[in-house]
Simulated scan of single mutants.
Amino acid sequence: MNNTLFIGLGRMGRPMSSHIAKRFSTSVYDVLKKSVDDAAEESGAEPIYDLKEAAGIDTVILMLPTSAHVESILLEEGLLGRLSAGALIIDMGSSVPASTRQLAEAAAKLGIDYVDAPVSGGISKAATGELTMLVGGEPDAIGRARPFLQTVGSEIVVVGSSGAGHAAKAINNLVSATNIAVVSEAVLRGKSAGIAPERMVEVLNASTGMSQASRVKFVQHILPGSYASNFAYDLMLKDMGIAMQINAPDAASPLTREAYRLLSDGRDVLGDNPDHTEIARVYEHLAGTSISEEEA
Rank of each mutant, 00 (worst) to 15 (best):
V135I: 15
V157D: 02
A145V: 06
E138I: 07
G153H: 03
T132A: 14
P139F: 12
R144N: 09
P118Y: 13
G143L: 05
I156E: 03
I123H: 05
G122W: 07
V119G: 01
T128Y: 02
L149V: 14
P118N: 10
V159M: 09
A141V: 09
D140K: 14
V159F: 09
I123R: 12
D140G: 05
E155F: 02
E138C: 01
G137M: 12
L131K: 02
V157N: 07
A145M: 03
Q150M: 09
K125G: 06
G137N: 06
A127S: 11
L131N: 02
V157G: 01
V135T: 04
A126L: 03
G122F: 05
G143A: 14
T132G: 11
V152T: 13
M133S: 12
F148N: 01
V119A: 13
I142P: 10
I123M: 07
S120V: 08
S124M: 08
I142V: 15
A126K: 00
L131D: 00
E155T: 15
P147E: 07
I123E: 08
L131Q: 01
R146T: 12
S124W: 05
G129M: 06
G137P: 06
E138H: 14
E130C: 11
I123Y: 01
E138D: 14
R146K: 14
I123G: 04
E138L: 11
V135D: 08
G129T: 09
P118G: 10
G143N: 15
P147G: 11
I156Y: 01
K125Q: 09
S124Y: 07
Q150H: 13
Q150V: 04
Q150R: 15
G153P: 06
S124A: 15
S154M: 05
A141D: 06
V158M: 06
I123T: 11
A141W: 02
D140S: 15
V152W: 00
D116N: 13
E130V: 10
D116F: 14
V135E: 06
Q150E: 15
A117L: 10
G129S: 06
S124N: 08
R144L: 02
V157A: 09
V159R: 02
P147N: 06
G122V: 08
P118T: 09
T132L: 05
A145S: 11
V159A: 07
A127W: 00
E130T: 15
T151H: 04
L149K: 00
I123A: 09
S124K: 10
L131G: 03
A126V: 05
D140T: 15
T151N: 05
A117H: 08
G136M: 07
A126G: 00
L149I: 13
R144D: 05
T128L: 12
S154L: 03
